[in-house]
């Protein structure tokens, strides 16, 4: 896993502003290791660099993130390496290491009501989880998705959102909207405050900008959810992805190795440490 394997881009889809979804297939004949929702790969653009990108691909029934023999990643061009990756076209090659890290707690979600809360690009790491839940929906008590974005046209995966809303409760919230928008205008925490939740039998999974996650945690705590019922994906400064370089050390944790998904109860003391 520590040596990049050569992959080729088999599909490319432009998403929202500066954001693309790439489907990647290995050039060798070796099978892909099983990936789980919430894990990430290191994508290596030759001559530009390597970045951690969460898996956002479709899944199979065993909740792995492989679709046939491919990985799917959604990424936004915000720097030199991600810009190079976002420019890749079908047939172009790149290096891939992974999958790495601890994913969403699929085993613990079984039998529970699941509240999925995503902000902006944070829906990408949650997409495999949502698809796993939907593929086996009878195993879960009730699934709700709360998704916040800046504007309606900047919400990821609009077709999937429509598809999901036929099977689960989907509530969308944007900061700004035009007069045609029929969804919520405001902040995601406002929706959470008015949502009906069963705090004794609910697990919440959260992914988005850290500020959004902070306020979301407070809203869920007001709803009575204990810290042990909150899971969130933290991705900070990951370089080696195997806990050696120390760049992503966060208190006693290495985000690349011990995360990126954490139970809030385990990281609460570090979450409000501004110096970290």
């Amino acid at each position: 896993m520590n040596t990049p394997r050569l992959f080729t881009v088999t599909d490319r889809r432009d998403e929202i502003t500066a954001t693309v979804t790439l489907e990647l297939q290995p050039l060798d004949d070796q099978p892909l290791p099983v990936a789980r929702p919430g894990q990430f790969n290191m994508l290596y653009s030759f001559g530009a660099g390597e970045v951690p990108i969460s898996l956002s691909g479709s899944i199979n029934a065993s909740d792995s993130v492989r679709s046939a023999d491919r990985y799917t990643h959604t990424l936004r061009a915000v720097g030199k390496t991600t810009e190079a990756l976002a420019r890749l076209q079908v047939g172009d090659q790149l290096g891939v290491r992974g999958p790495f890290g601890r994913g969403w707690p699929m085993d613990q979600l079984a039998g529970k009501k699941v509240v999925v809360i995503a902000g902006g690009l944070g829906l990408a790491p949650l997409k495999p989880l949502l698809e796993a839940l939907l593929a086996d929906i009878t195993h879960y008590g009730h699934v709700q998705l709360f998704y916040g974005g800046k504007r309606p046209e900047e919400l990821l995966y609009p077709e999937s959102l429509i598809h999901w809303s036929e099977k689960i409760e989907v509530q969308l919230s944007v900061d700004q909207a035009g007069p045609d928008w029929r969804g919520h205008v405001g902040v995601i925490t406002q929706l959470l405050a008015s949502a009906e939740m069963d705090p004794d039998n609910t697990l919440a999974v959260i992914c988005g900008p850290e500020i959004m996650m902070r306020f979301t945690i407070q809203a869920l705590q007001k709803q009575g959810l204990p810290d042990t019922a909150l899971y969130l994906s933290m991705e900070r400064n990951m370089h080696c992805a195997v806990g050696h370089c120390g760049h992503c050390q966060w208190g006693p944790h290495f985000i690349c190795k011990d995360g990126p998904v954490f139970c809030y109860a385990d990281i609460a003391p570090w979450f409000f440490q501004r110096e970290l």
């Binding site: 929202i16 502003t17 500066a18 954001t19 660099g49 390597e50 970045v51 951690p52 990108i53 969460s54 956002s56 990643h73 959604t74 990424l75 936004r76 915000v78 720097g79 030199k80 390496t81 991600t82 902006g120 690009l121 944070g122 990408a124 790491p125 900047e154 992914c207 988005g208 900008p209 850290e210 994906s233 991705e235 900070r236 400064n237 990951m238 990126p260």
Partner: peptide
């Protein structure tokens, strides 16, 4: 969509 001070899921400053 502007670069954020921290890496976030699916995006990176690098």
């Amino acid at each position: 969509a502007d670069p954020a001070p921290l890496c976030r899921p699916g995006e990176s400053l690098r």
